[in-house]
Write a protein that binds this DNA or RNA. Structure first.
Lengths: 215, 215
DNA sequence: CGGTAAGCTGACGGCATGACAGGACAAGTG
DNA sequence: CACTTGTCCTGTCATGCCGTCAGCTTACCG
């Protein structure tokens, strides 16, 4: 599928090279969790990986290039978020469960990848098309499924005609992503993690169906 | 209110000094809009302001310090967002209008300050307390008002008891902020600006009152 | 064992950082 | 007008990271 892994100067990477490359990615990933993106230096990543800066530049054009790589890997996993909505229904009690599981799965994914997602979010907000595309890849699966659900309910007359399914779905997905990034923020509003989830699920359910869930 | 403006080495800044300082802030602000935060260098800001890097360091400890200054100024203005909710009602047609005006005002504020808000968001997400506090200052006013509205409706029995007002309010505010930061993203989902607003207002109304608006 | 390509690094010019001392400038004083 | 005072700005410098290259080492293959 993807051709061979190549170094910046065009050579194909062998087993050893790929290991080094991966180690650099792992170390970068770790550094992103522990220090501000702005302060992540090539030399630190290289030191942490027990190699030299020159080696880093053999595999990546710059820090951003390596970050994109990590983000791509994550986006590939993130595409699996679709499963949270595949074959689910929004009617009755199972609708409430669908909402809850969507919120759960989404927050969990974000929690696991928060460091890299922060950077992706920033890049996308700054207008960088590459980051923007990656963000889309992750959100699109969920967003499209949600939009489809809403559109279907709409065609059955169970949702108002003047609702734009894509807009509502996008807003809900953006909400989930934002809340996940700033979970700590809620504690200072006196909201605990456990309380947050059902309330998010409520909002999702309200947004999709226009009705309160029957629990 | 705030004591005199001081240079890094403790001297009080005069009229000329304050002008230079402000010019540096303005130029930094402009650079943040046009290039990635990570790539904003002191030397560029100084050049743009027609001064030298050394001058910059006379007024600010580093780029981040200056960014915080800009963010504080913005947060002060942002506190005015409370007005969007003061004395408003959520009943009937005026409830729908309240939601619309909140969305409008919020998006407008975000659009005006998007560059600096991106950086604040990133800093807050990375766990920097100073940025976090500024983000709070802006969101708190809106959030508290919203939470109060919900709590009031709840006490009248018009909203379910198991709703946590602060959680719902926080999620809605986070949604508005996120959508504002990624407005461009919606166009690739085929959603136009003008369509977005009423759908956001709908979600806000649903979240606060638990019911569809009567238009 | 020799050839070839992959893998890594020391070293270097270039540039941003951040500190300092001293010069330029405005304003008040005799 | 000369002199003083305190603010304001910049030239310069040591330091450290960036990004590149030539060249050395290692692994694989016939």
């Amino acid at each position: 599928m993807t051709g061979q892994v190549r170094t910046v100067d065009g050579r194909v990477a062998g087993r050893r090279g790929q290991a080094t490359r991966q180690k650099l990615l792992d170390c970068l990933s770790e550094m992103l969790s522990s220090s501000p993106y702005r302060d992540v230096k090539v030399i630190d990543v290289a030191r942490k990986a027990g190699t030299s800066p020159a080696t880093f530049y053999q595999y990546f054009p710059d820090v951003e290039g390596a970050v994109l790589e990590i983000a791509e890997q994550m986006a590939a996993e993130g595409a699996g978020l679709t499963e949270l909505l595949e074959g689910r229904t929004w009617a009755g009690k199972s609708g409430w469960q669908t909402a809850q599981e969507l919120v759960d799965g989404f927050l969990e994914f974000w929690r696991k990848n928060d460091a890299i997602l922060r950077v992706v979010d920033l890049g996308a907000a700054e207008g960088d098309k590459r980051f923007y595309k990656i963000r889309m890849k992750i959100l699109n699966s969920v967003n499209n499924s949600l939009a489809d659900s809403i559109a279907e309910l709409q065609s059955k007359g169970r949702v108002d005609k003047d609702v734009n399914p894509a807009a509502v779905a996008g807003a809900l997905v953006a909400m989930l992503a934002a809340v996940a990034s700033h979970q700590k923020g809620f504690s200072s509003w006196g909201v605990k993690q456990a309380e947050l989830k059902p309330n998010l699920a409520l909002l999702v359910h309200l947004g999709v169906t226009g009705r309160k869930p029957s629990k």
